[in-house]
């Protein structure tokens, strides 16, 4: 699943997957429209519904926190 999420993130913005730091929001790797693109893509491709409560900074720090978000959404559903 992790690889699938990475691949989807790469489609939105390669830099997200390449990013090695701890907070890609502070480092301005992603912009607001891209966060929307990520959510829409994950929902469409993984068949999940990501509630607005998951779209918070803590889940968008690195590629792996996005993977964690997907896992948490799946647990909930």
């Amino acid at each position: 699943m992790k690889e699938k999420v990475y691949a989807l993130l790469e489609e939105v913005n390669k830099k997200i997957v390449q990013y090695e730091g701890e907070n890609m929001l502070e480092d301005e790797i992603v912009e607001s429209m891209e966060i929307m693109d990520i959510v829409v893509k994950l929902e469409e491709e993984l068949g999940i519904e990501i509630g607005p409560e998951y779209i918070v900074p803590e889940y968008f720090m690195t590629k792996d926190t996005i993977v964690k978000m997907v896992e948490d959404v799946r647990k909930e559903q």
Binding site: S32, I35, M36
Partner: peptide, 15 residues
């Protein structure tokens, strides 16, 4: 409009 679109698309208005 982009700012309003992001809010609408991420269903935040429900919350």
């Amino acid at each position: 409009p982009s700012a309003l679109v992001v809010v609408a698309n991420l269903r935040a208005l429900r919350a």
